[in-house]
Structure formats: C-alpha cells, structure tokens
C-alpha cells in the first residue's frame, strides 16, 4: 500500500487521479443527459418524475451517486493541490508570458473548472437539495390505459404518503414529487438560464481539452487512437453534450 501512496503522490499519480475522476464524470454526463432528455417529453413531466424517483431510490445507483460526489470533490481538491505545486515550480514569472501555440482552454482549466464547480453547487442547491429535503411540489398523474390520455393535478402533502404507482380500474395512478415543475419554474428566471448557458460553454471548453488530455495522461495517445479520441472529445463531449444540457433551460424559458 505504501508503494501505491508513493505512486499516487507523484506528479504522474496526481494526474492519474485527475484523469480517472474526470473520465468518470464524463461518463456520468452521458447518463445524466440521456435521463434528462425526458424533460422534452410532452407528458406533463410524468416520465421525468418517474426517472427522477428511480435515480434517487435504486440502491446501486445510489452507490454510484456517492462515487460521483466524491469524484467531484477529489477532482476539485486535487486540481487545487496540483495548481499550487505547479505555481511553486516557477516562483519568478516571465515578464512576457510565453507564447506557446497551446489552445486557450488547456491553459485555463482551473478557471473553467472553478466556473463548473460553482455551477455544480448552484445546480445541486436548486434541484438536488430541494428534492432530497422534500421541498418539491407534489403531483398526481392519472393515465387512462385505454386511451393513453394523461391528466395531472397538484396534490397537497396530506394526499401524499410517498411515491406510488398503481393501476386502479384501468387507470394508472402515479403520485410523485414534481421535480419537473421545479425545473420548469426555475428556468423562468433569465439570469439562471444565462448562468446555465455560460456554465455549459465552460463545460465545452473544459472538455475539449479535458477529455483528450485524460487519454494522454493514461498513455493512450498514439497515431492509432488519436483520431477517434479527438472525434469523441470534440463532437460528443465538447459540442453535443453541452448543447444538449444548455437546450433545457432555454427550452423552458421560451416554452
């Protein structure tokens, strides 16, 4: 074990930690985005609320979510440690900052990361915290299984004993916390929408460097893999995913 701690406290080991937590967070983004696409469904939020319940109550996913929280924290803390150590490596700065042909984002991962960290805090306070603390409004869906039509109504706390979903007389009744409404309400504020869009732009720049960089750190940068990694890094992680996420606040704002 002492060998492992030596390895992880080397410059390369610290980078490995950044890389592994980063890649894990990347994989989470795909899951999160796919799930959140339920927001675009025109069903009064039924599918999204069901998904939200599933994600917060299914044990294996709960375990993974704790991994996720710790990854965010480790990624952030290690970034701080590395940055401080790197600053020490050059105590006297250049009078003229070296021009070096590197892309802007690669030199500003810390700034981008800080924006993202603030975003995550705001985002979790907005939705995760309220949802977990039971501050979310409640809703009941009634779906006629014959016609497929869904009706919904807001219910009070007295009518709600927890998430339920059952069939009664050919009608599927779902009582749930209404995170969908929470989302919809939140994104009526223009400044929040703007903040989300800015954060997603930061995400884009963070990942255009970060994703490919992770593979460099792992040692998988050679002429065979590079085109594929670059393609995924640019098209999926720095274009599609940030656009997908940014579309949500915009959608609700203009809806």
């Amino acid at each position: 074990m002492s060998n492992f701690s030596k390895a992880f406290s080397s410059t390369l080991g610290r980078k490995l930690i950044m890389c592994l937590t980063g890649l894990f967070l990347c994989s989470f983004l795909i899951v999160h985005l796919t799930g959140n696409f339920q927001l675009f469904k025109n069903d009064g939020g039924l599918a999204f609320n069901q998904y939200a319940h599933f994600m917060t109550h299914f044990t294996p996913i709960k375990v993974v979510s704790y991994l996720l929280y710790s990854s965010i924290l480790i990624h952030t803390i290690w970034a701080l440690i590395i940055t401080l150590k790197n600053k020490k490596a050059r105590p006297v700065a250049y009078a003229i900052t070296p021009k070096d042909g590197s892309i802007w984002s690669s030199r500003n991962m810390g700034v981008l990361g800080t924006i993202l960290f603030v975003f995550i805090v705001v985002h979790m306070a907005n939705f995760w915290y309220k949802y977990h603390q039971g501050y979310t409004p409640l809703i009941e869906y009634r779906t006629d299984l014959n016609s497929g039509a869904t009706m919904s109504r807001t219910i009070s706390e007295s009518e709600f004993t927890g998430y339920v979903s059952y069939i009664d007389n050919g009608i599927e009744i779902t009582k749930s916390e209404d995170l969908y409404l929470e989302v919809s309400n939140a994104f009526q504020q223009w400044w929040l929408v703007l903040f989300y869009v800015i954060a997603m732009a930061a995400l884009s720049f963070h990942l255009v460097h970060g994703f490919q960089s992770a593979f460099q750190t792992l040692g998988w940068n050679n002429s065979k893999y590079r085109p594929l990694i670059k393609f995924i890094g640019v098209w999926i992680f720095s274009i599609l995913i940030p656009i997908g996420f940014a579309a949500m606040p915009i959608y609700f704002f203009f809806k």
Binding site: S10, T11, L12, R14, K15, I82, K85, N86, K88, A89, R90, P98, D100, G101, S102, I103, S106, R107, M109, H209, Q212, S213, Q216, T217
Partner: peptide, 17 residues
C-alpha cells in the same frame, strides 16, 4: 519530482517550443 519540476497539464507548449 524530487527536483521540483511542475506537473504536466497537457498544454503541449513544450512540443511547440
């Protein structure tokens, strides 16, 4: 590491220069 060099953040400025 012992000599106190910083770590790589993959900006690739080294390759360019």
């Amino acid at each position: 590491d012992e000599e106190g060099f910083g770590s790589c953040t993959n900006t690739y400025a080294c390759e360019a220069q």
